[in-house]
Simulated scan of single mutants.
Amino acid sequence: MQANYWKNNPVTVSLIAIQVVVFLMMTMMGGSTNTVVLLKFGALNASLVQAGQWWRLITPVFVHIGFAHILINSITLYFIGLYIEQLFGHWRMLVIYFVSAIAGNLLSTFWISNGLSAGASTAIFGLFGAFIMLGVTFRENQAIRMLGRQFLILVVLNIVTDLFVPGIDLAGHLGGLVGGFLAGYAVGAPRLGHVNSVERVLATVVLVLGLLVLFVKVS
């Protein structure tokens, strides 16, 4: 089963491997809680993004602050990636992952004027959003519908927790969630069935316009 996981989920495995390698490099260069090290490896900082360092809308998904942070995100990505990569396919998962990351980090940059944040949670929330999209679109599929509901409950619990825990990037999580939900419609899920063309076009337009508006607001 383990061997099949690595073979059938190359995108998930690669993403986890990259963030682990980055974490080890950060540890060797001064520690993953060191602000200078975090910024050097691409953590999100609104001022630097607005100064033109747009790559920081993507690089934070590979940067984590402390061992507990990378452990939780890696475990979560391991399990949600199993579903998303198999149901959407490899390249579609990759698109959803990075679109969610950009959406989450853009909203975070717009919402939070200063400070520093990092982690794969913006993209992971996007994967949850994509699965919720499957639950809505393929609600006649009992297994997908039930899993979609479970993920929705998990997301709601996480967001409620975010409201009471200081230091959590709620904007990033919400942006990633919505970005992943819309991106799921945009790329479709042919392995499961047909997604309504009108819904796909509408979701794509809303997603693109939303990202453009945030980009303009941030810049």
Results as ranks from 00 to 15, higher is better:
143 A>T: 15
136 V>Q: 06
113 S>M: 08
155 V>F: 11
174 L>P: 00
79 F>M: 07
94 L>F: 14
90 H>Q: 14
92 R>A: 12
188 G>L: 03
146 M>D: 15
63 V>M: 01
163 L>T: 11
189 A>L: 03
193 G>V: 02
77 L>N: 01
117 S>A: 15
188 G>S: 02
131 F>Y: 13
196 N>E: 14
114 N>I: 00
123 A>V: 08
140 E>D: 12
131 F>H: 09
191 R>C: 00
81 G>L: 06
70 I>W: 08
64 H>Q: 13
107 L>C: 05
109 T>V: 13
179 G>I: 08
66 G>N: 10
61 V>C: 10
101 A>R: 00
103 A>D: 12
187 V>M: 07
74 S>M: 10
168 I>K: 15
111 W>M: 14
137 T>N: 03
116 L>K: 10
71 L>F: 14
130 A>P: 10
158 N>T: 15
158 N>M: 13
90 H>V: 11
125 F>E: 05
134 L>H: 03
149 R>E: 06
171 A>S: 06
69 H>V: 09
167 G>H: 06
70 I>L: 12
166 P>H: 02
55 W>F: 14
171 A>R: 02
140 E>T: 14
52 G>N: 05
49 V>E: 03
110 F>T: 12
185 Y>F: 15
82 L>T: 04
115 G>A: 04
108 S>P: 11
162 D>C: 15
154 L>Q: 10
184 G>N: 09
110 F>P: 02
170 L>V: 11
119 G>I: 00
81 G>I: 05
185 Y>N: 11
80 I>T: 14
145 R>E: 12
180 G>N: 02
169 D>V: 07
